[in-house]
């Protein structure tokens, strides 16, 4: 039997296939399609200090090989998540990771503090693609100083393993990755969605009520792969790779580029069973190649 156990710094996963934040709710909806215990990890929706209503519809538009979304950070707030959502996830075999967001450094830290000690939480993933209201709405993730500050503040507020999820909407991803590690991130997730837009030529207006949205799906896979490659080459830090993964083969590309684990996002919408299918495909690959596991493949495409 292939052993898919995966170690990412302080975080141990039963296998390297996670489901990405915002694409899997709190797992419940997918429970009728798959056995959630089989997942390598479940990253829940972005959680903020206060409840957020999210953006006006339309929030979704299909684009070539993917989609744009402007859901915004719709969520019931950290206290309601702790009260109502996390208890339903206790007893799950796969680690639950909470994705956290905020509009100020203080908010991130407070969300992290409240999640500290929650029995069902295995790690925190910091979403730094949010606008920083104290810095004129500039996204945290675009500036190395802000990245280091926000990661550091969260680091001080929690004892949980810390993942920082990087935004691709930056000039130099390695510089941002370094700042996140400096701030205390032990694992990096990349990538979040790529900023884009679509225009309705009949209405002559942007399709999304929010004008801009985040592009995801196979369309962004080459960008994501390149960024995983660059960050691995520079830092050798544990990486969760994501962006357009729809098959075991796609997952292997990320692993060979340097990702120790991968996350499936938008592909869950197309096939709610795809995460488990990818796990099976990775097992089949390991067996067909006569390997013990995947660890020898991580970053193996680098010269």
């Amino acid at each position: 039997m292939a052993d898919l156990t995966t170690v990412l710094g302080p975080l141990k996963l039963p296998n390297p296939v996670l489901v990405a934040s915002g694409t899997f709710g709190y797992g419940e909806e997918y429970g009728t399609y798959i056995d959630l215990n089989q997942l390598g990890g479940l990253v829940v929706k972005g959680t903020t200090l206060h409840p957020r209503g999210g953006n006006r519809p339309p929030r979704i538009v299909e684009t070539p090989a993917g989609l744009l979304n402007s859901v915004g950070l719709q969520n019931p707030g950290v206290d309601a998540v702790i009260r109502e959502e996390l208890p339903k996830l206790t007893g799950l075999k796969c680690p639950v990771i909470v994705n956290i967001a905020g509009s100020t450094v203080g908010e991130y830290a407070e969300v992290a503090a409240r999640l500290n000690g929650q029995p069902s939480v295995a790690a925190l993933e910091i979403n730094i693609s949010c606008p920083n209201v104290e810095e004129g709405g500039l996204a945290f993730g675009t500036d190395p100083v802000m990245v280091r500050d926000v990661v550091q503040a969260v680091r001080e507020a929690t004892t949980l393993p810390l993942i920082c999820k990087l935004s691709p909407n930056v000039g130099d991803i390695v510089q941002i990755a370094e700042a996140a590690v400096e701030g205390g991130a032990q694992i990096l997730s990349l990538i979040n969605t790529v900023l884009g837009m679509s225009i309705d030529v009949q209405a002559r207006r942007p399709v999304l009520a929010n004008t801009f949205g985040g592009l995801s799906g196979p369309a962004i896979r080459p960008i994501a792969l390149r960024m995983v490659w660059e960050v691995y080459a520079a830092l050798r830090v544990p990486i969760i790779g994501m962006g357009g993964i729809t098959s075991g083969q796609d997952a292997l590309e990320f692993i060979l580029a340097g990702a120790g684990a991968i996350a499936v996002g938008s592909a869950n919408f197309v096939d709610p069973r795809i995460s488990v299918r990818i796990i099976r495909e990775l097992e089949a690959y390991i067996e067909s190649q006569g390997l013990d596991g995947l660890s020898s493949l991580v970053g193996a495409a680098h010269p």
């Binding site: 709710g25 929706k45 209503g53 519809p57 929030r59 979704i60």
Partner: peptide
């Protein structure tokens, strides 16, 4: 417009007096 169709992505929001 829908993403998942099963309640997970919050893409298909419709406004109500008490939120989406």
């Amino acid at each position: 417009r829908m993403g998942c169709g099963i309640g997970a992505c919050l893409g298909c929001a419709c406004p109500t007096p008490n939120g989406y």
